[in-house]
Design a protein around this nucleic acid. Sequence first.
RNA 1: GGCGCGGUACCCAAGUGGUAAGGGAGAGGUCUGCAAAACCUUUAUACGUGGGUUCGAUUCCCACCCGCGCCUCCA
Length: 497
Amino acid sequence: MALRLFNTLSAKVEEFQPQQDHLVRMYSCGPTVYDYGHVGNFRTFVFVDILRRFLQQSGYELKHVMNITDVDDKIIRNAAKQGVTVGEYTKKYEQAFREDMQTLSLETPELIVRATENIPDMAAFIAGLEQKGYAYRADDGSYYFRIAKFPEYGKLSKKDFAGMEVGARVDVDEYDKDNARDFALWKAPKPGEAWWDTAIGAGRPGWHIECSVMARKFLGDTLDMHLGGEDLIFPHHENEIAQSEALTGKPFARFWVHARFLLVEGEKMSKSLGNFYTLRDLVLKGHKPSSIRYLLASVPYRRQLNFTFGGLKQAASSVERLRNFKLRLETGHFEPGSNPKIAALAQTARECFTATLADDLNTAEALAAVFDMVREVNAAADAGEVRKNDIPPLLAVLTQFDQIFDVLRDTDAPKIERILEWAQKEGNLDGVSNGRADVYGTLTSKVSDQGVEELIAKREAARRARDFKASDAIRAQLAEAGIIVEDTKDGVRWKRK
RNA sequence: GGCGCGGUACCCAAGUGGUAAGGGAGAGGUCUGCAAAACCUUUAUACGUGGGUUCGAUUCCCACCCGCGCCUCCA
């Protein structure tokens, strides 16, 4: 089924087809590594991840490039404040970002590229623009893009700059720009700032040039899709289009897809409102990475997602329900044979799941398709209508689901542990809420699977002897270690909290 | 001010010109030694407010109210 996506450029939902058979060349704007990533950042990255995974599930091969912006005003300022070089400063946050990607089970793009490692290419790109008259050099050695020469400027963000008069609104400190809207391609060095010596002179790149240059270098003149958060539409992506199309004369990207901003507790996330959370903050408050990923993925990317702590708890319950269902299929006892009714349920779920995702990545409806199956199969299993041969197709649906959502495999514990270690090292445990105790409880238990099995065997013996006092004591002991014991009609099963 | 998006039950959140998915939570029940898990039943005379179009609107149009985004580097 063909994927339909909302293309910001056309402002319509369009059917996506790559230029070349089954290869998708995509570029997504990665982080500026000046601090730890926050939930808002990750809403966008989770969207990109879901899209990546669905494309792959649909049979496409990906060549996905993501940039790391490792030089900009904020980085230069913060590095200077700490008295370290830009490289030293960004290394730490790039590493942190990569760890955060793992925490959220985000797939690694085929290529991650750093701005600072492609400076000569940027200089050459700017020189090319200057040659064609799209760029000019200011007195101080900075380069600007001449917007007046690119009539299509504004086509992505739907802004009309036609009435803008050249020089009309130039600020006094921007005297060397021809037009106030002209944006910097290259910034001349300032005292104490990082700079590079290049063919077009000394300085550092402007914000937009890195993406135009690296996208072209690694993916070619025309991308299949270019992704990012909605705030990047203007000016970032608009400027990328101007730079790239001015130079190559070809469309820069066929699809522009943007994720909507989220709200936190119903309000815009901001430090002043006190609702600003990094991924690490949330984990330290006792929320599992799988809950966070689920919540971020469960609302379609073009909807304003209201990220709340209540929602996080709900997400945890939803994930738990799915994991329980999987456990039931894997550990339950079913009579031999097969039931066509169950096969039909699996088939319907499979088809709906794909169809809803293909419809502009409607993750909410895709989840509904899976939950419909869960409910109906659970009911059928209770009625003894599920047979052994029905299990593989049902598990196949869950596999298909998890290829996209990736929350069924329980990998939370080691991730939480890593963040706790980091927090202890950084002395960041102050202000961590009660959730911490739970997290610690789970992690410090460290009971081996074998140890659990032994205790459960002991408990079973006690239960058979109808010594419920003893068996309940063992269950409580396990619970303290973060192990949940469940007595099903098919026998005992256990899981880690 | 300009442009754009949204307001659906206790919470999160789909969707449709013909009378409302899914998840969570709550209540009652089944199962269980007890729990847990699971299942069943139940919880929106109605989709921000007021008009209009229509045989019929939550779904289309207009106005208003509220929230959100972009309009100089915030995903």
